[in-house]
């Protein structure tokens, strides 16, 4: 545990010296918040909370970019092999990166909520405890997924390609960029298999409907379950050296990281509650201003229903 804390402080120090942290962790999400609010929630109120949920989710999901790239850079530059000489294992390296990422996320999340409330006139803060717990758990989930990507990818180029594919699917299908109910029905069902969907819908419920933690069981279970599984997986397939090849058997572990979402997606598809709740939130939020958060592809005023 002492080593985890030592490495966490080391990573925090490095991050604070990196301008990219300030730019991508704080400034860009705030720019998105202002931009989305200006377009979709210019009169403030619950629409700002709806926009905030998307921006918070985007910030949280960004964890997998940062962590996967950092791990690959450390591996390619031979930094990991220097640490390998010290008496510590892959778990210590991984946990320290997840914790430091979590700590570094706090200022950005806090700034986005503060700006939404005080500058963009979001009328209520929602259930802040739920928002913070979901954001924290989401950060851990996406960080571990990023670490899985870094362990699978053999180079920075491969990491970028995998990240782009995941990022775009999370962004476009989970309700971050386009409200979930605006998607075609079959795509809404596909979205139920994505971790990002549970983060976005959970944040929407916590911010707009003040849903307390004890009513966010599915979201917490999906994010928590996949964090645990993804962490186990990335520990199994962790590579210190660029030339180390991932054993073929280990690739099966990667598939195992997707199991919680497959199970939850199948369950949610059968129940149908999440999609109808997403429609209800969208409808209630934009009822008086139907055009305020319309996506280019499909206006939220006429959500698709099964």
């Amino acid at each position: 545990m002492r080593h985890v804390w030592t490495l966490t402080l080391f990573r925090l120090r490095l991050a604070m010296r990196n301008r990219a942290f300030l730019v991508f962790g704080i400034i860009i999400p705030l720019i998105f918040l202002f931009l989305f609010s200006a377009v979709f929630a210019s009169k403030g109120g619950p629409a700002v909370a709806y926009v905030l949920a998307s921006v918070l989710a985007m910030s949280v999901m960004g964890s997998f970019w940062g962590l996967s790239q950092q791990l690959v850079i450390f591996r390619e530059q031979g930094i990991l092999r220097r640490f390998r000489l010290a008496p510590l294992g892959p778990g210590t390296m991984l946990v320290s990166s997840i914790i430091s990422n979590l700590i570094l996320m706090v200022p950005g999340i806090a700034a986005e909520i503060a700006v939404a409330h005080w500058m963009l006139h979001m009328d209520a803060l929602g259930n802040l405890l739920s928002v913070f717990v979901l954001s924290a758990l989401g950060a851990v989930t996406f960080a571990t997924l990023g670490l899985v990507v870094a362990s699978v990818a053999n180079s920075m180029m491969e990491t970028q390609v995998i990240n782009q594919l995941l990022w775009l699917s999370f962004l476009l299908l989970s309700g971050v960029a386009i409200p979930l109910p605006s998607l075609p029905i079959w795509l809404q069902k596909v979205a139920l298999y994505l971790p990002a969907t549970y983060l976005v819908t959970g944040l929407e419920r916590a911010l707009i409907e003040f849903v307390p933690l004890n009513h966010l069981g599915a979201e917490l279970a999906s994010l928590g379950g996949s964090s645990v599984l993804a962490f186990f997986v990335c520990q199994q397939i962790f590579r210190w050296e660029p030339e180390e090849k991932m054993p073929r058997q280990a690739k099966l572990w990667v598939a195992a990281a997707l199991v919680p979402f497959l199970l939850l997606g199948a369950w949610e598809t059968k129940q149908g509650g999440r999609l109808s709740e997403a429609r209800s939130i969208l409808h209630s939020t934009f009822a008086e201003r139907p055009a305020q958060r319309s996506a280019p592809a499909a206006p939220p005023a006429q959500p698709n229903q099964p």
């Binding site: 080391f10 490095l14 010296r17 031979g78 930094i79 220097r82």
Partner: peptide, 15 residues
């Protein structure tokens, strides 16, 4: 019990 200088290794630039 051992210390090593590896042939190819590095540290982060900002440490």
């Amino acid at each position: 019990s051992v210390g090593a200088v590896l042939q190819s290794t590095s540290l982060p630039d900002k440490i």
